[in-house]
Design a protein around this nucleic acid. Structure first.
Length: 450
DNA sequence: TTTTGAGTTGTTCGA
DNA sequence: GTCGAACAACTCAAA
């Protein structure tokens, strides 16, 4: 059983298949994880630490039998299979651009040895490639995708295997956590913590999720994204517990967004790195410079932007509403190509997922799946006022503004003495940059239309 | 093939 | 302060 983004025992079709195939005379199922530098490369310290902790938790759950190897899976997986005499290597299907290529090459390498790679199940409620429009093409708009997704239905989660005989093989220890920035707090890793988090969400926030999910100060989202990223829980398990209320329905739609973006990426593998739609191909961008660095550091002078960028560094996680606000700021106030922001997010986010992250960025940038409104430029002050009305979120993450009350918390440059405690003045004028963004979009569209 | 309806998340301006 | 219109016409999905 080659584990990848499925670090759990419950609701795990591939693991069940591996158990079913094990005969009484066999040594059992070997749990293998390969530390692949191609996948570790884009991840920062927070995400790596979370991954390593998930691996340690899985190792504990299976009695210390997790076999960790380091290297290229194309070499490592066949070598381990040969060592233990495994005829079949089970895994969950990976639909990402790298994973697809890697698994094809691993399957070929195994086949040369008379062995088989058997992928089964996916990290999604509805696997990428399963749903099509009436015309047989992949979806590119969310709402019709959601209707098809909902109509398709989701299988009931299979139970965990009752007793697994875990085989033993030499491996490397799970690496120690990389040095983490001072003050970084990570969620508890692993399958058990995922279950506890979901139980708490159902208990406390799910019923009011539809309204409160948009208030970063309320912190009322599920915070399940890191667990979904590494498969500590399968979305099927979550969906099985949801009811019909407005909050539950809204949460179901967010899980469908995750499936949608995975589907879009699988149908358009290049869209992880390049614009999905060519309409803005001639768009004029600025290279990331000191302003982009101020964005990364949370020193733009716009409180909700800086609060978000500081939460990102402090937790490896960022509230969804604020992801949109800070992304809009980089793309439309600083005129930086979305790919630069997407890469920073993948480095800093514990939940950094190629499909959701990069297509979320493309949605903001106007190069992705969302049709039309290129003129949607978030105003950081207006966004702060409407989604963080009393400034709770801003004051939590920007201590310089801890004593600012009222409307000024979202525009501290209007205070009589300017921003307090050394908090910076705005690095750009929003109204001016908004006009500039619209001008560039207009030019790109005229150019594309010719 | 053509037509029609609709598209996660917005902002600004003027009445 | 609130409300509706304009932004500018594009692409997707289904009838």
């Amino acid at each position: 059983m080659w584990f990848r983004r499925d670090l759990r025992l419950a609701d795990h079709p591939a693991l069940l298949a591996a158990c079913d195939e094990t005969a009484a005379a066999d040594p059992g199922v070997l749990a293998l994880f390969v530390l692949d530098d191609t996948l570790r490369g884009p991840a920062g310290a927070a995400r790596l630490a979370f991954l390593y902790r998930c691996l340690r938790e899985l190792d504990e759950r299976i009695g210390g039998r997790l076999c960790v190897r380091t290297g290229d899976p194309v070499e490592v997986v066949p070598a381990v299979a040969r060592e233990i005499g495994a005829g079949t290597v089970h895994c969950s299907t990976d639909h990402g651009p790298y994973g697809t290529r890697r698994d094809r090459r691993v399957a070929e390498a195994l086949a040369r040895d008379g062995r088989e790679l058997r992928p089964l199940g996916s990290p999604y409620a509805v696997a990428p490639g399963r749903l099509h429009t009436a015309g047989g093409t992949p979806f590119r708009v969310y709402t019709p995708y959601y209707r098809a997704w909902y109509a398709h239905g989701v299988r009931k989660p299979p139970a965990a295997p009752r007793e697994v005989r875990w085989a033993r093989a030499d491996g490397d220890p799970v690496p120690p956590d990389p040095a983490l920035p001072a003050g970084l707090t990570l969620p508890t890793a692993g399958e058990e913590a995922a279950g506890a988090r979901f139980a708490q969400f159902l208990d406390a926030d799910a019923a009011r999720y539809a309204t409160r999910r948009d208030e970063p100060g309320a912190d009322a989202t599920s915070r399940l994204s890191p667990y979904l990223k590494y498969g500590c829980v399968h979305p099927r398990t979550l969906l099985a517990r949801l009811g019909r209320g407005e909050g539950h329905e809204r949460f179901r739609m967010e899980l469908a967004w995750r499936d949608f973006y995975a589907d879009v990426l699988a149908a358009n593998p290049d869209s992880a790195r390049a614009d999905l739609t060519p309409a803005l191909g001639g768009m004029e961008y600025d290279e990331p410079g000191p302003d982009a660095q101020a964005w990364r550091d949370g020193r733009t002078g716009f409180p909700i932007v800086d609060a978000g960028m500081r939460q990102l560094l402090a937790e490896g996680w960022l509230h969804n509403r604020v992801r949109m606000i800070v992304a809009s700021f980089l793309c439309k106030d600083l005129h930086v190509w979305w790919g630069h922001g997407a890469r920073w997010f993948l480095r800093t986010l514990v939940d950094g997922d190629l499909a959701s992250n990069n297509h979320g960025w493309q949605w903001v940038a106007g190069t992705g799946t969302d049709a039309a409104p290129y003129f949607r430029v978030f105003n950081p002050v207006a966004q702060g006022r409407s989604h963080d009305p009393d400034g709770t979120y801003v004051r939590r993450w920007v201590p310089e503004l801890a004593d600012v009350t009222g409307r000024a918390v979202h525009e501290p440059w209007t205070l009589p003495d300017g921003p307090p405690n050394g908090y910076p003045r705005p690095i750009v004028g929003h109204a001016q940059e908004r006009r500039e963004a619209l001008r560039r979009y207009g030019t790109a569209r005229v150019r594309a239309a010719r």
